[in-house]
Each structure stands twice: as C-alpha cells, then as structure tokens.
C-alpha cells in the first residue's frame, strides 16, 4: 500500500473517531489529546535531533512562543469579531495556529543562525539557555488591549477553548507526513548527510549551516503549532508550562523512540505520555518507577525502540521481503 493512501485512511479514521470523542471520559480524553500534541512535538524535534543530528534542548521554548503568540492571536480575534461561533471556530484556530507556528519558526531562525555554528554539548547548552530566556521574557510581559489582559506574565494567560481531537491529531498527521516526505526526498537526504558526517556532507556540496538552520526552523514551526494546540486545549497557560524540563521530556521521547525513526518516536510519545498517568496509583513512587522504566528501556534498546527505522524504509523492506518469497 502506498504511504499516501495509508495517511489518507488514517485521516478518515480520525474524522470517524472525532465523532465519538464526546463520549470519552474527560480524563482519558485529556491524555489522548496530550498524546497527539506530544507526537507533533516529538516528530518535529526528531527532525532536528534525530535526522539532522543537532542536539537541541530548547524545544519547549519554541512551543512556548507558539502557545503564547497563537493565544494572543485567538484572544484578539475572538474579541474583535471573529468569534468561536464563526464556522465553529475553525478560521480563528487556523489563523492562531499559523501565526503561532510562524512566530516560533522566526524565533528558531533567530536562535539557529548564531547557535548552529556550535556542535554537540555546546549547542545543547545554548538551546537550553535560550529556552529559559524565552520563559523569563514571557514571565515579564503583560499588556492590555481594549481592557483585556494579554500574556499576563507569571500570573498566566486565559485562552479560549478551540483545540479538538481532530485538530490535534490532524496536525500530528501533517507533521508526520511532512517530515517523512522531507527526509525521503533527494533534498532531505542532505539532513541525514549532515548528521552522519558534516565534513563529507560539505564535500558533497551540501550547505551544512543552511541545512541545520532549515531543520531548526521547520522543527520550531511545528513546535509552535504544538504549543498553540496545547494552549487552546488547557485554556490556561503559564510560563512554567514551558520550562526546560518539558524540553527534556520531548528529547527523551526522541531518544527512546530511536533518533531518526519517526515510527519509534511516535510510539515513544504515546508510551511516555501514558506511563506517568498509568503510574498514578503509585503516588509518590510514580517518578521513581517512571525513571527506572526509562533506564531499563534504554539498556534493553539503546538504539531506541525502532532503531533508525523509518516508515517508508519499513514498507520498502517489507515489500522487498515479500518480493523475495
């Protein structure tokens, strides 16, 4: 079966599922939505960390930029005529997500150009620091338009409810489809080449800095949209939602899933969202068990759940195996 067809089928399935989400227990529904958002976050970070090999620890920062900017956009629009009643809130959400994504992408560009000259640990430290800078900036921003408070600094920012199952998983699907197609294109192979050997990639004619910045910008764009989905789901965001701990959480998903394996990263995003919830009954031992499970998983599968397998390669291999028989 062709990947396009599979994606189309999954999308149709999502529409079907979205009709029954109202009947799900709200707690489970929340977990499901977080799974979808985390898939988008992890898939986009995988483009930077997994496929391009640039270790970023600032993904939550971009998520925060997207969350706040999209929330500003939706709050402004809903109080200026384009309310949630217009076509079920679809236009306002679409605009808010797009603006949030673009703002995050622009931030990614601004951060990426100077810092992507650095490698490995140094880049990780810079992106980590940047994550905190964004958080601190948000903490100190607070303004009013027509008497309505925006951003709200450390107090937090109330956001209209606009996210839905279909939005969250539709976007996740778009992110997966986009990243997979990019990586399997002739152009996208440049990202993999940068990861495997930067000098050789440069000797082959790959403009390595440009590729790194592109991965960063695209990854940030989807992180921003993920932030927008998050903000419009939980309806109340504070800067503390986007600390570097959130970044690390996403990095863990990428590493556990297998750097550069979209397949594995999706599975890890699902697993790591469910695990802390499933462990709730252990109350105070929850995080200990969670950490232990991570350690065991990492020892058992150091290459990640799926190694470096990708969707398309997986299908290509299956096809090859089927042809042999």
């Amino acid at each position: 079966m062709r990947p396009q067809l599979i994606f189309a089928l999954i999308f149709a399935g999502l529409i079907g599922l979205s009709l029954v989400t109202g009947k799900i227990d709200p707690y489970y529904y929340t977990v499901i939505i977080f799974i979808g958002i985390n898939i988008t976050m992890a898939t986009s970070l995988n483009l930077i960390n997994g496929f391009t090999g640039q270790f970023s620890l600032g993904h939550a920062g971009f998520m925060g930029v997207g969350a706040y900017v999209s929330a500003i956009a939706s709050t402004f629009l809903t109080t200026h005529g384009l309310g949630t009643e217009v076509m079920g809130g679809v236009p306002v959400m679409a605009i808010a997500l797009l603006v949030g994504g673009l703002a995050a992408a622009l931030t990614g560009l601004a951060v990426g150009i100077p810092s992507l000259r650095l490698k490995g640990d140094y880049l990780a430290i810079v992106t980590l620091g940047f994550n905190e800078i964004i958080r601190v900036i948000i903490q100190n921003v607070d303004f009013k338009i027509d008497g309505i408070s925006y951003v709200g600094g450390a107090r937090g920012f109330a956001v209209p409810q606009l996210s839905s199952f279909l939005w969250v998983f539709g976007i996740a699907l778009v992110a997966i489809y986009f990243v997979e197609n990019l990586i399997n294109s002739t152009y996208g192979r440049g990202f993999l080449a940068v990861r495997d050997d930067e000098v050789a990639a440069e000797a082959m004619g790959v403009h390595t800095t440009r590729f790194k910045v592109r991965a960063f910008v695209i990854g940030s764009f989807f992180a921003g949209i993920g932030g927008g989905l998050f903000a419009h789901f939980i309806q109340y965001i504070t800067p503390d939602n986007f600390t570097f701990l959130k970044s690390i959480e996403i990095v863990v998903m990428v590493i556990l899933g297998g750097m550069g394996s979209t397949y594995g990263v999706i599975l890890a995003a699902i697993l790591l969202t469910i695990m802390p919830e499933a462990l709730r009954e252990f109350s105070e031992y929850r995080m200990i068990i969670y950490s232990l499970m991570l350690i065991v998983l990492m020892i058992a599968r150091p290459q990640g759940l799926f190694g470096s397998e990708t969707f398309t390669r997986f299908f290509a291999k299956r096809k090859a195996a089927a042809n042999k028989v």
Partner: peptide, 12 residues
C-alpha cells in the same frame, strides 16, 4: 573529493 578516512554516511 574522496576524503581521507573515507567519511561514508554510515546510516545511509
């Protein structure tokens, strides 16, 4: 250039 130490893209 075919660089020293070959510098193959190991995962490709």
């Amino acid at each position: 250039q075919s660089p020293e130490g070959r510098m193959i893209f190991a995962n490709l």
